[in-house]
Design a protein around this nucleic acid. Structure first.
Lengths: 141, 141
DNA sequence: TTGCAATTGTAATACTATTGCATTAATATA
DNA sequence: TATATTAATGCAATAGTATTACAATTGCAA
C-alpha cells in the first residue's frame, strides 16, 4: 500500500519534493478506485474544496509513473495506483469493460514466451504489455 | 493481401457500400507502410490531389477495424493494415520504437496462458492484447 | 432511370495534451 | 527561525484528437 509517508520518502529518495499537489493526486487516485484521467483527478480534487492545475496533474502523474507508483493504462490513457511492486519490463492488466476495474497481474511464463517471440522476429525487446479485456467476477453475476 | 476488389467484395458481403472514400483510405494505409493516424491518412489522400473529410476517415477506419481489415494500435491510436487473417480474440504486436514499424504475431501458447490467468482471476475474457515494445532487426544495426 | 437508404461533408464542439514563462513554495543551511 | 535556492506549480496559449447532429450526396437495387 502507498501510505502518504512512504510516498514522501520515495520522493525524497529521488531528490524530489513532497508537495501538496503530489499528495492530493495520490489521495485522488486511492479514493477514486477505478482508473482515472488527469481531468477526473482534477475534478475529484476540486470536489474536496482544493484546487490544482490541469498541467500539474499531468506532470505529477508523469513523475508517479516514472517512480512506479502508478500505471497508465495504455489503450485508455487512464491512471491507477500500482498494486504489485514494480516488475521491470512487464505489465499485465485485466480490464473489466463493465465496471472499468483494472487489475494487475504478473506471469513469468508470459515473459518467457514474449521474449522468445521477440528473439525470433529479430527484435530487441525493451518491455512487454499484456492486456486481457473482459468482464470481472463481480460483473458477470 | 487486400486488393481493391477483394475489399469491394468484403464490404458488399456485409451489406456495406464500396465507396470512393473507403478505397482512398485503404490505398493510403497500404502506401504509407507504417501505422498512421486518421490525420496522417487524410494528409496522404490530400497529397494525391484528392479530398476527404477528417470525420469520414475516422468513420471509415472504424468500419475497417470491425471488418478485421485494419488494426488500431492501442497505445498510440495509429492504424495499419491487418496482415494476418483475423484470429478472433487475440492480437499480438511487435512495436519498434525507432522506425515505428508494427509487426503482428500470433502465438497460441500465449492465448492459453492468458486464458488461464483470466480464469484464475474470475474474469470472463473477451479478447487479449500483447504488445512487445523494442527495437526491430533493421534498427538495431 | 429513379428512389431510397447508406454514406459523406460541414460545422460546431468537447476532450486530451503540451509548451514557455512567471510565480510560488519546499527544503537545506546558516 | 529566517533566508536563499531552485524545484515545482500555475497560468495562458495553443496544438492535436475525437465526436455529434444534421444537411447533402452518392451507391446501388429495382
Amino acid at each position: 500500500m502507498n501510505t502518504t509517508s512512504s510516498i514522501a520518502h520515495l520522493l525524497k529518495a529521488q531528490g524530489l519534493r513532497d508537495t501538496q499537489p503530489r499528495r492530493m493526486v495520490m489521495q485522488a487516485l486511492i479514493h477514486i478506485q477505478s482508473p482515472a484521467s488527469p481531468y477526473d483527478i482534477q475534478k475529484w480534487i476540486t470536489a474536496q474544496e482544493n484546487t490544482i492545475n490541469t498541467v500539474t496533474v499531468y506532470r505529477v502523474l508523469e513523475v508517479f509513473e516514472s517512480l512506479g507508483l502508478v500505471h497508465r493504462h495504455p489503450s485508455s490513457g487512464l491512471y491507477f495506483p500500482c498494486s504489485i511492486p514494480e516488475i521491470k519490463g512487464h505489465h499485465g492488466f485485466l480490464h473489466c469493460t463493465k465496471c472499468h476495474l483494472v487489475e494487475e497481474f504478473h506471469n513469468p511464463e508470459l515473459c518467457v514466451i514474449e521474449n522468445a517471440i521477440a528473439k525470433k522476429a529479430g527484435f530487441k525487446a525493451k518491455n512487454h504489455l499484456s492486456e486481457i479485456v473482459g468482464v470481472c467476477k463481480g460483473c458477470v453475476l
